[in-house]
Design a protein around this nucleic acid. Structure first.
Lengths: 137, 137
DNA sequence: ATTGACTCTGACATTAATGTCACGGTCTAT
DNA sequence: ATAGACCGTGACATTAATGTCAGAGTCAAT
């Protein structure tokens, strides 16, 4: 049964669509990050939006945030329940601050790295004229 | 024995100077991230540079990099063995790419968050004139 | 009705980073 | 030389995220 129009996914389909393992999807659910409904027979039924949601979750996870941290603001970011979210404003602000810090940190690392690269490059062209300056990719 | 001039640290001192636990410092060593020398009696003796090194390590760890990944380029970043580092250039470039992606992602998340905040704020002043517009900090 | 692909739950395993505890050696001051 | 603070190793525990496996139910097609 191909996902027809704007429909629901079973867990295996969602897994393939997002790259997250089935195991992980169930884990995310237990952590309160996604909430599929259930069919009569107990199968998980995911809204099509879940694809984006899960991708977002994985993205956060890759940045070193924990499911707990993510859970702290994800229902607001993902679902559009602004009304419900008013009380959550300080949380947003806090997150914003944290993200800013992370960005700063990354930028610092980035320029550090770039400096290193530059210094290697300049030393190289210094000693060995131009040999192996090719990008190997 | 206070660290006099440009001297060495024992593990406890390094721990206090960096915020990393003694346990973690030993772990970093086992992972090949730092290499203190040993006194006759077997005590670890850290160079004063180790303070910066460890801070850098923790920074990377906080960004979700593993000790293994860090080890992959840290000897180059930390020690100034550029000559030895030439072969490691592609690794640098790869990292740089990853970091750029992470930054991009974060920036995206950031503006998403900011949008949310704005929309909550505007909705609020929309409905309730000016009540509770105070920052709760 | 039977098969095969999919799903469910639950349990156990694993990896990374860290904590903690036990037991023993070291260093310094008294 | 004895105490107290520090250090060494090794073992076991823990947390987070994920893998894997077992036993059973579901669904679709034949």
């Amino acid at each position: 049964m191909q996902p027809k129009e704007g429909w629901t996914l079973k867990i295996g389909e969602l897994s393939k669509a997002t790259g997250a393992s089935i195991r992980s999807l169930r884990y995310y659910e237990k952590q309160g990050l996604i909430a599929p409904v259930r069919t009569e027979s107990g199968y998980r039924e995911y809204h099509k939006f879940a694809v984006e949601q899960v991708k977002t979750i994985r993205l956060y996870l890759n940045l070193g945030l924990s499911t707990e941290q993510i859970a702290g603001f994800l229902h607001c970011v993902l679902m559009n329940e602004e009304a419900f979210c008013r009380e959550v404003l300080p949380v947003y602000r806090q997150k914003l601050k944290e993200i800013d810090e992370q960005i700063q940190t990354l930028v610092r690392i980035r320029s550090n790295l770039e400096e290193r690269i530059q210094s290697i490059l300049s030393e190289r062209t210094d000693n060995e004229s131009t040999e192996g300056t090719n990008d190997e990719h």
